[in-house]
Structure formats: structure tokens, C-alpha cells
């Protein structure tokens, strides 16, 4: 099955990003294709490489980057939401990109499921 994920909250403030990540990992483990994770609202702040949490905490941006590298999951931040929040190409972690809401529409159309995580 092909699954798209929509993540609407930023890292750390809410559990949404953690649940989305765990869900994506489990879906891949079960043999599904996680096509893309689309970041919206504050969700766009999931992929800034300026993120530098304490060593004993998870690095949420790094984790999304790894997921992209290992499994080819596209990690896509909405351009309008990114511009509002100061997220630009030069501060994105590897494996992520900025794109438009049209891409989210494509993700909704081409996948069997679109699963939303938010708060």
C-alpha cells in the first residue's frame, strides 16, 4: 500500500512529529511504501538543520533526514508555511525540500492513504 503523511505540528512542542515518525517506520517495516511526509503549519520547522537538541534527546530533523536517505521518503515542507516561519532551502536538512500545496494535492491523489498527524 502507498501511504502519504501530513504532519501539521513542529518538533518537541507536540508529540505529533514523534507519532508520525513511529508510524512511518512501522509502515515501512510492514512492507508499505511511505511516499512522502508533507509538512504544514508549524510542521515545516521539523526539517531545519539549525536544530541542536541536547545529546540525550532525539534529533527530530536528523531523524526525518535519515528516513529519507534510507527509504526514499520525500520530506516536503509547504512553501507558504515555510516562508511565514523563516524556513528556507539553505537551512533544510539533507533529504528534505520545499514545495507547494499542489504537491500535497498530488500526494493525496496518488496514495492509497493520507494520514494526518497534528495537535
Amino acid at each position: 500500500m502507498k501511504i502519504g503523511i501530513l504532519l501539521k505540528e513542529g518538533p518537541y512542542n507536540h508529540q505529533a512529529s514523534d507519532t508520525a515518525f513511529k508510524f512511518a517506520e512501522a509502515a515501512i517495516k510492514k512492507g508499505h511504501i511511505v511516499d512522502a511526509v508533507f509538512l504544514y503549519n508549524d510542521g515545516v520547522t521539523n526539517v531545519t538543520k539549525l536544530m541542536d537538541p541536547p545529546q540525550d534527546d532525539r534529533n527530530i530533523a536528523g531523524r526525518w533526514s535519515e528516513l529519507s536517505k534510507k527509504h526514499g521518503v520525500e520530506i516536503l515542507a509547504c512553501i507558504a508555511a515555510s516562508k511565514r516561519r523563516g524556513i528556507s532551502d539553505d537551512i533544510l536538512v539533507e533529504g528534505s525540500a520545499i514545495t507547494g500545496l499542489g504537491t500535497l494535492t498530488d500526494i493525496a491523489i496518488r496514495n492509497d492513504r493520507l494520514v494526518t498527524f497534528g495537535d
Partner: peptide, 19 residues
């Protein structure tokens, strides 16, 4: 359910995520 069980439910159903 664990996360894989969550995925299993998503295999069977479309999802309505209330927050």
C-alpha cells in the same frame, strides 16, 4: 495495538484524525 497494529488498522480503513 503497537505502531504496526496502528498501520494494520490504516490498511483496512481510511483515516479520520481528530485532534
Amino acid at each position: 495495538v503497537d505502531y504496526e497494529g496502528f498501520v494494520g488498522l490504516v490498511e483496512e480503513h481510511q483515516v479520520n484524525s481528530w485532534f
